[in-house]
Amino acid sequence: MSTQRSLRTTLVAGILGAAVFAASAPALAETPPGAEPAGSNAVATAQGLVLDLTHVGLAPIPVASLPVPVGEPGGTADPIAVPVPAPTDVLRIGNVQVGRPDVIPPEQAAQFNATLGGAETSLARMLDGQGFEPARSDQIAASVFGKAAQGAAVGAIVASPIAVAAGIIGAAVGLVVALPFAPAGLIFMPIIASTLAAGMVIAPFAAIGAGVGAVVGGIEGAQAPLPAP
């Protein structure tokens, strides 16, 4: 009985040694002369290894998890950069920031900022490809988006009196069109017609203002001094 137990112990030790040698052999073979063997690779490979010894009458033996060295000897691991979350209390358009209205949820504000931020980054990278310095490209892109937003707002304000008149006329026309569909049509048609009429007036003015603002922003961004690093 003791002889059989000794045989099993010898088999277990031999298999463990063979497994560790097999895990470390590639790393040792690729180690250039004079360099330290990549022992951490062997340790990492051996982690989680389970030896199936059922064919010799023993239960599977999991190899104990060993600590894997991280970073340089005696050093610490490099810190992991934590992404800065998009602001949710402001709406950012280029170099223009406005407070988030209460009617806009924080999630939508973050999505709005992320979408426009990605478009601004794409414009800056395009300018990099045209030979601009990265700092100048970022400044031009931020100025273009900011001035475009301001121009669109100015255009909408300029068009607002005309849009109000167009909305009133649209509501009246929608009411006349909805009479054959009363009573349900009287609720929806005037609102839809008024919204379409006002939007058709505001949209061109806002688009013109955004275009002019983008041109002005591009010129200002190209000529303005860069901020101090």
Rank of each mutant, 00 (worst) to 15 (best):
S6K: 11
T10H: 00
T10P: 03
L11Q: 02
L11G: 13
G14T: 06
A18Y: 09
A19F: 10
A22K: 12
S24D: 08
E30H: 14
P33W: 01
A35V: 05
V43Q: 01
A44H: 13
A44D: 11
T45Y: 01
A46C: 10
V56I: 15
A59I: 09
I61S: 07
I61W: 11
A64Q: 12
V68L: 08
G71Y: 01
P73I: 13
G75T: 09
D78N: 09
A81T: 12
V82T: 00
P83Y: 02
V84D: 04
P85G: 09
T88L: 03
T88C: 02
V90M: 15
R92L: 03
V96Q: 03
P105R: 13
E107D: 07
A109C: 00
F112T: 15
A114R: 01
A114C: 07
A119Q: 11
L123N: 08
D128Q: 13
G131D: 00
E133R: 12
P134I: 06
A135K: 00
A135N: 01
R136Q: 00
R136D: 01
S137L: 02
D138I: 06
D138S: 04
I140S: 04
A141Y: 02
F145Q: 14
K147S: 14
K147A: 15
A149Y: 00
G151F: 05
A153G: 13
A153R: 14
V154S: 12
S160C: 11
S160D: 13
A163C: 09
G170E: 12
A171F: 03
A172M: 15
A178D: 14
L179I: 15
I192H: 05
S194E: 02
T195E: 03
A197P: 05
A198R: 14
V201P: 03
V201W: 00
I202G: 04
A203S: 14
A206K: 04
G209D: 04
A214T: 12
I219Q: 12
P225D: 01
A228G: 09
P229L: 10
